[in-house]
C-alpha cells in the first residue's frame, strides 16, 4: 500500500515543470490562503442562506456542525500524528516542491481533514454549494500532492477522518441541540440568526 502510495506520488510530482502555467495555478491552489479562506467564507455565506426561517436555521446548524467537525477532525489528526510520524515526501525522495516545507507529520493531512469537514457539513445542508466545496477540497488535496508536500494516502486518510467525524457530529447534534437552539435564539434578539 505504502509502495503504491509512493509510486503515485512520484508520478504526479514528476509532472511538475512540464506545464509551467499549470504549476503556477497549483501554487495558488495549494496556498494556505486561497481554498481554506474560501471555504471559511462559504460558511459565512451559508449562515445567511435559506429561503425561510426553518431553512436558515438548518443552514446555521450546518455552520455550527462544520466548525465543530473541523475542530474534532484536527484533534483526531493531531492524536494520530502524535502516535505515528510519517516524514514528508521531500524528506525521503527527490521532489520538486511548489510549496514551503512543512515540518509536521505527513499522515494524515490536517489541511485536507479541515477542508473536507467544512465541505461535507455544508453538503449535508445544501447539496449545490456543498458539491462545489467538495470539489474545492478535492482540488486542494490534489494540489498538495502535486506540490510535493503530501502523499496521496495522507489526503485520503484526512478526507476519511473528516467524513466520519462530520457524520458523527451530525449524529450527536441532537445532544447539542438545546445549546445550538439557545445560541440561535439569542442571535435572533440581535437579528443575526
Amino acid at each position: 500500500m505504502a509502495k503504491a502510495d509512493e509510486t503515485v506520488f512520484l508520478w504526479l510530482n514528476g509532472l511538475v515543470g512540464k506545464l509551467p502555467f499549470f504549476d503556477r495555478i497549483v501554487e495558488l491552489v495549494v496556498s494556505d490562503y486561497l481554498i481554506p479562506v474560501s471555504l471559511a467564507l462559504a460558511l459565512v455565506g451559508t449562515w445567511f442562506a435559506g429561503g425561510d426561517k426553518l431553512a436558515r436555521q438548518r443552514h446555521q446548524i450546518g455552520v455550527f456542525v462544520a466548525l465543530s467537525a473541523m475542530a474534532l477532525s484536527s484533534l483526531v489528526v493531531f492524536t494520530i500524528n502524535a502516535a505515528y510520524f510519517r516524514p514528508r515526501p521531500f524528506v525521503d525522495h527527490e521532489v520538486t516542491r511548489l510549496f514551503y516545507a512543512p515540518t509536521d507529520s505527513s499522515f494524515p493531512s490536517n489541511p485536507a481533514a479541515a477542508a473536507f469537514a467544512i465541505a461535507v457539513a455544508v453538503w449535508a445542508v445544501n447539496r449545490r454549494l456543498g458539491s462545489l466545496l467538495l470539489a474545492a477540497a478535492a482540488l486542494y488535496g490534489f494540489a498538495r500532492v502535486y506540490a510535493g508536500v503530501h502523499y496521496p494516502l495522507d489526503i485520503v486518510a484526512g478526507a476519511l477522518i473528516a467524513i466520519v467525524v462530520t457524520f458523527l457530529t451530525f449524529k450527536i447534534r441532537d445532544l447539542l441541540g438545546p445549546i445550538l437552539t439557545w445560541v440561535i435564539k439569542v442571535g435572533r434578539i440581535f437579528c443575526v440568526a
Binding site: V37, L41, A42, G45, F48, A49, R56
Partner: peptide
Amino acid sequence: SALGVIQIGASFG
C-alpha cells in the same frame, strides 16, 4: 471578501 459574501448570502436569502 466577507463583505461580498454577506451581500451574496443576503441576496440569496
